[in-house]
Amino acid sequence: MTTKPVISIRNLDHYFGHGQLRRQVLFHINLEIYSGEIVFMTGPSGSGKTTLLTLVGGLRSTQFGSLRVLGRELCGASRQELVKSRQRNGYIFQAHNLHGSLTALQNVKMGLELHQHLELAQMRIRSAQMLEQVGLGHCLHCYPDQLSGGQKQRIAIARALVSHPQIVLADEPTAALDSQSGRDVVNLMQKLAKEQGCTILMVTHDNRILDIADRIVHLEDGLLKAEV
Protein backbone atom coordinates (compact mmCIF):
# COMPACT_ATOMS: atom_id res chain seq x y z
CA MET A 1 0.00 0.00 0.00
CA THR A 2 1.32 3.38 -0.96
CA THR A 3 0.96 6.41 1.22
CA LYS A 4 -0.72 8.44 -1.50
CA PRO A 5 -4.53 8.25 -1.18
CA VAL A 6 -6.56 7.48 -4.32
CA ILE A 7 -9.60 9.09 -2.74
CA SER A 8 -9.15 12.05 -0.47
CA ILE A 9 -12.13 13.81 1.09
CA ARG A 10 -11.69 16.99 3.16
CA ASN A 11 -14.40 18.95 4.95
CA LEU A 12 -17.09 17.79 2.55
CA ASP A 13 -20.58 19.23 3.06
CA HIS A 14 -23.54 18.40 0.87
CA TYR A 15 -27.03 19.83 0.70
CA PHE A 16 -30.23 18.69 -1.00
CA GLY A 17 -33.00 21.02 -2.14
CA HIS A 18 -33.18 24.77 -2.41
CA GLY A 19 -34.32 27.69 -0.26
CA GLN A 20 -36.64 26.70 2.61
CA LEU A 21 -36.37 23.03 1.74
CA ARG A 22 -32.59 23.03 1.73
CA ARG A 23 -31.33 20.31 4.00
CA GLN A 24 -27.79 19.29 4.83
CA VAL A 25 -27.15 15.57 4.33
CA LEU A 26 -23.37 15.36 4.76
CA PHE A 27 -21.37 17.19 7.45
CA HIS A 28 -17.62 17.77 7.42
CA ILE A 29 -16.68 14.44 5.96
CA ASN A 30 -12.98 13.66 6.12
CA LEU A 31 -11.81 10.38 4.66
CA GLU A 32 -8.76 9.05 2.89
CA ILE A 33 -8.71 5.77 1.03
CA TYR A 34 -5.43 4.29 -0.17
CA SER A 35 -4.67 2.26 -3.21
CA GLY A 36 -5.65 -1.40 -2.94
CA GLU A 37 -7.84 -0.90 0.12
CA ILE A 38 -11.25 -2.48 0.47
CA VAL A 39 -13.36 -0.05 2.46
CA PHE A 40 -16.91 -0.78 3.54
CA MET A 41 -19.32 1.96 4.43
CA THR A 42 -22.13 1.05 6.81
CA GLY A 43 -24.87 2.96 8.50
CA PRO A 44 -28.66 3.17 8.76
CA SER A 45 -30.66 4.13 5.73
CA GLY A 46 -30.86 7.85 5.17
CA SER A 47 -27.47 8.41 6.73
CA GLY A 48 -25.98 9.70 3.48
CA LYS A 49 -23.86 6.68 2.47
CA THR A 50 -25.23 6.52 -1.03
CA THR A 51 -24.90 10.28 -1.48
CA LEU A 52 -21.25 10.08 -0.53
CA LEU A 53 -20.76 7.21 -2.97
CA THR A 54 -22.37 9.13 -5.85
CA LEU A 55 -20.16 12.13 -5.08
CA VAL A 56 -17.01 10.03 -5.18
CA GLY A 57 -18.25 8.44 -8.40
CA GLY A 58 -18.79 11.80 -10.08
CA LEU A 59 -22.50 11.11 -10.52
CA ARG A 60 -23.33 14.27 -8.57
CA SER A 61 -21.54 17.59 -8.42
CA THR A 62 -19.59 18.21 -5.22
CA GLN A 63 -20.76 21.44 -3.58
CA PHE A 64 -18.47 22.32 -0.68
CA GLY A 65 -15.14 21.11 0.57
CA SER A 66 -12.61 19.10 -1.33
CA LEU A 67 -12.95 15.73 -3.02
CA ARG A 68 -9.94 14.43 -4.88
CA VAL A 69 -10.20 11.17 -6.82
CA LEU A 70 -7.03 9.83 -8.46
CA GLY A 71 -5.44 13.24 -7.93
CA ARG A 72 -8.23 15.19 -9.65
CA GLU A 73 -10.40 17.66 -7.79
CA LEU A 74 -14.12 16.99 -8.32
CA CYS A 75 -15.38 20.01 -6.39
CA GLY A 76 -16.23 22.59 -9.05
CA ALA A 77 -15.46 20.18 -11.88
CA SER A 78 -17.32 20.68 -15.17
CA ARG A 79 -19.80 18.11 -16.48
CA GLN A 80 -17.22 17.10 -19.03
CA GLU A 81 -14.66 16.38 -16.32
CA LEU A 82 -17.22 14.45 -14.29
CA VAL A 83 -17.98 12.23 -17.31
CA LYS A 84 -14.23 11.65 -17.76
CA SER A 85 -13.85 10.78 -14.11
CA ARG A 86 -16.70 8.25 -14.36
CA GLN A 87 -14.91 6.48 -17.18
CA ARG A 88 -12.04 5.72 -14.80
CA ASN A 89 -14.26 3.96 -12.23
CA GLY A 90 -16.05 0.65 -12.17
CA TYR A 91 -19.60 0.60 -10.84
CA ILE A 92 -21.55 -2.25 -9.31
CA PHE A 93 -25.14 -1.55 -8.41
CA GLN A 94 -27.65 -3.15 -6.09
CA ALA A 95 -29.54 -4.39 -9.13
CA HIS A 96 -27.36 -5.84 -11.85
CA ASN A 97 -28.60 -3.26 -14.42
CA LEU A 98 -27.49 -5.37 -17.33
CA HIS A 99 -28.92 -4.51 -20.71
CA GLY A 100 -31.58 -7.11 -21.52
CA SER A 101 -31.03 -6.89 -25.28
CA LEU A 102 -27.31 -7.62 -25.03
CA THR A 103 -25.64 -10.96 -24.40
CA ALA A 104 -23.31 -11.42 -21.43
CA LEU A 105 -20.33 -10.79 -23.72
CA GLN A 106 -21.84 -7.66 -25.27
CA ASN A 107 -22.73 -6.31 -21.83
CA VAL A 108 -19.16 -6.73 -20.62
CA LYS A 109 -17.82 -5.25 -23.85
CA MET A 110 -19.83 -2.08 -23.15
CA GLY A 111 -17.46 -1.57 -20.20
CA LEU A 112 -14.52 -1.52 -22.62
CA GLU A 113 -15.87 0.49 -25.53
CA LEU A 114 -15.13 3.80 -23.83
CA HIS A 115 -11.45 2.96 -23.84
CA GLN A 116 -10.42 4.07 -27.27
CA HIS A 117 -7.12 2.28 -27.61
CA LEU A 118 -8.62 -1.22 -27.96
CA GLU A 119 -9.51 -2.93 -31.23
CA LEU A 120 -12.73 -4.88 -31.63
CA ALA A 121 -10.97 -8.26 -31.50
CA GLN A 122 -9.04 -7.30 -28.37
CA MET A 123 -12.22 -6.12 -26.70
CA ARG A 124 -13.91 -9.45 -27.45
CA ILE A 125 -10.99 -11.45 -26.09
CA ARG A 126 -10.71 -9.41 -22.94
CA SER A 127 -14.44 -9.52 -22.29
CA ALA A 128 -14.51 -13.28 -22.74
CA GLN A 129 -11.49 -13.71 -20.43
CA MET A 130 -13.17 -11.55 -17.82
CA LEU A 131 -16.33 -13.66 -17.99
CA GLU A 132 -14.23 -16.78 -17.56
CA GLN A 133 -12.62 -15.25 -14.50
CA VAL A 134 -16.04 -14.75 -12.91
CA GLY A 135 -16.89 -18.36 -13.78
CA LEU A 136 -19.29 -17.68 -16.65
CA GLY A 137 -17.08 -18.75 -19.55
CA HIS A 138 -19.81 -21.18 -20.61
CA CYS A 139 -22.54 -18.59 -21.14
CA LEU A 140 -20.90 -15.82 -23.14
CA HIS A 141 -23.86 -15.61 -25.47
CA CYS A 142 -26.63 -15.95 -22.91
CA TYR A 143 -29.06 -13.09 -22.41
CA PRO A 144 -29.48 -11.81 -18.83
CA ASP A 145 -33.01 -13.15 -18.46
CA GLN A 146 -31.70 -16.71 -18.97
CA LEU A 147 -29.42 -16.39 -15.94
CA SER A 148 -29.83 -16.45 -12.16
CA GLY A 149 -29.49 -13.38 -9.93
CA GLY A 150 -26.02 -14.40 -8.78
CA GLN A 151 -24.85 -15.01 -12.33
CA LYS A 152 -26.17 -11.65 -13.43
CA GLN A 153 -24.36 -9.89 -10.61
CA ARG A 154 -21.16 -11.70 -11.63
CA ILE A 155 -21.59 -10.36 -15.18
CA ALA A 156 -22.05 -6.89 -13.69
CA ILE A 157 -18.77 -7.39 -11.79
CA ALA A 158 -17.07 -8.46 -15.00
CA ARG A 159 -18.41 -5.35 -16.72
CA ALA A 160 -17.14 -3.12 -13.91
CA LEU A 161 -13.69 -4.70 -13.77
CA VAL A 162 -12.99 -5.50 -17.42
CA SER A 163 -11.41 -2.11 -18.04
CA HIS A 164 -9.11 -2.56 -14.98
CA PRO A 165 -10.36 0.52 -13.15
CA GLN A 166 -8.33 1.79 -10.21
CA ILE A 167 -11.47 2.34 -8.16
CA VAL A 168 -14.60 0.20 -7.92
CA LEU A 169 -17.68 1.70 -6.33
CA ALA A 170 -20.37 -0.72 -5.21
CA ASP A 171 -23.75 -0.11 -3.64
CA GLU A 172 -25.06 -3.12 -1.73
CA PRO A 173 -24.13 -5.60 -4.45
CA THR A 174 -25.30 -8.53 -2.31
CA ALA A 175 -28.65 -7.11 -1.22
CA ALA A 176 -30.68 -8.90 -3.87
CA LEU A 177 -28.83 -12.22 -3.52
CA ASP A 178 -29.17 -15.22 -1.23
CA SER A 179 -26.39 -15.66 1.32
CA GLN A 180 -24.37 -18.19 -0.66
CA SER A 181 -24.35 -16.24 -3.95
CA GLY A 182 -23.78 -13.04 -1.99
CA ARG A 183 -20.75 -14.59 -0.37
CA ASP A 184 -19.49 -15.84 -3.76
CA VAL A 185 -19.92 -12.41 -5.29
CA VAL A 186 -17.91 -10.54 -2.66
CA ASN A 187 -15.22 -13.22 -2.59
CA LEU A 188 -14.93 -12.80 -6.31
CA MET A 189 -14.74 -9.03 -6.02
CA GLN A 190 -12.04 -9.33 -3.37
CA LYS A 191 -10.02 -11.81 -5.43
CA LEU A 192 -10.17 -9.75 -8.62
CA ALA A 193 -9.50 -6.51 -6.79
CA LYS A 194 -6.38 -7.97 -5.22
CA GLU A 195 -5.22 -9.30 -8.60
CA GLN A 196 -5.76 -5.98 -10.35
CA GLY A 197 -4.68 -3.90 -7.38
CA CYS A 198 -7.83 -1.83 -7.39
CA THR A 199 -9.49 0.00 -4.55
CA ILE A 200 -13.04 -0.85 -3.53
CA LEU A 201 -15.47 1.44 -1.78
CA MET A 202 -18.64 -0.47 -0.95
CA VAL A 203 -21.85 0.51 0.79
CA THR A 204 -23.33 -2.49 2.55
CA HIS A 205 -25.75 -3.53 5.26
CA ASP A 206 -24.77 -7.15 4.95
CA ASN A 207 -23.11 -8.32 8.18
CA ARG A 208 -22.15 -11.68 6.65
CA ILE A 209 -19.52 -10.19 4.41
CA LEU A 210 -17.86 -7.62 6.67
CA ASP A 211 -14.83 -9.86 7.20
CA ILE A 212 -13.36 -9.14 3.75
CA ALA A 213 -13.09 -5.40 4.43
CA ASP A 214 -9.70 -3.88 5.21
CA ARG A 215 -11.49 -1.04 6.93
CA ILE A 216 -15.09 -0.21 7.79
CA VAL A 217 -16.36 3.33 8.15
CA HIS A 218 -19.68 4.13 9.78
CA LEU A 219 -21.90 6.96 8.69
CA GLU A 220 -24.77 8.25 10.79
CA ASP A 221 -26.93 11.35 10.21
CA GLY A 222 -24.47 12.64 7.66
CA LEU A 223 -21.50 12.41 10.00
CA LEU A 224 -18.62 10.00 9.70
CA LYS A 225 -18.93 8.50 13.19
CA ALA A 226 -16.09 6.13 13.58
CA GLU A 227 -13.69 3.98 11.74
CA VAL A 228 -14.32 0.45 12.90
Binding site: G57, G100, L114
Partner: peptide
Protein backbone atom coordinates in the same frame (compact mmCIF):
# COMPACT_ATOMS: atom_id res chain seq x y z
CA UNK B 1 -32.31 2.15 -16.17
CA UNK B 2 -29.84 0.74 -18.67
CA UNK B 3 -29.23 4.18 -20.16
CA UNK B 4 -28.64 5.65 -16.69
CA UNK B 5 -26.17 2.82 -16.06
CA UNK B 6 -24.34 3.65 -19.26
CA UNK B 7 -24.22 7.29 -18.21
CA UNK B 8 -22.78 6.23 -14.85
CA UNK B 9 -20.14 4.21 -16.68
CA UNK B 10 -19.11 7.39 -18.45
CA UNK B 11 -21.06 7.27 -21.72
CA UNK B 12 -22.07 10.71 -22.91
Amino acid sequence: REYATFKAMGYR
